[in-house]
Amino acid sequence: MAEVAHHYDEKMPLEYRTEESRLNILGFWIFLGAEVALFATLFATYLVLFQRTGHGPTAMELFKVKEVMIETLLLLTSSFTCGLAIHEMRRNRLKGLLTWLIITLLLGAGFITFEIREFIDYVHEGATIQTSAFLSSFFVLVGTHGAHVSLGIGWMILIIIQLLQRGFTPRTARKVFIVSLYWHFLDVVWIFIFTLVYLTGMVI
């Protein structure tokens, strides 16, 4: 596997054209593997603890279908628009890329807004991170995902600034591609939060 010696012609998407970019993209994939292990541990903690509610409310008493569905659809759509942004980038359309990235960003911000509102609601109902093992693990699992999304928003803003300053270069293209991987990955995590936390909490 002496890939080092390969040289890419111009047909290759821009983000793959330099050796450095290819290494960074692969490295980010590996990092996502580590993130899978990180979230798996949080899921394991949650699933072990979620029926241990102490004196606090149970999952079934707490979760509301409507809010959760809004959050889910916002994030799912943002993953789609993020994919469209990459599609536009590969067609070499900077304007299309920027438009879809900004839409993604807004959807992400909407998701975070709803999540914060959800958390505040729970706290008002007396369900705080200190109430029970169930709630500690719930807030930390869902909160870690939320923190990732917030970080992704900040990161995407930095990249949009760089795109405006520098336009398409192998470096900016690679950065856009990597942030898109991150964003899709957060949707993957959310699918499991949606399933194993919210949906499961509605039946057990």
């Binding site: 290819r22 993953s79 898109s180 899709h184 993957v188 699918i191 499991f192 194993l196």
Partner: peptide, 20 residues
């Protein structure tokens, strides 16, 4: 959920593309 996760990986994230 697993189906949907693989959907993201293959259709959105282009997991199998590039020499890696």
């Amino acid at each position: 959920a697993m189906l949907q996760a693989s959907l993201q990986l293959f259709m959105f994230m282009h997991m199998t593309e590039s020499d890696s």
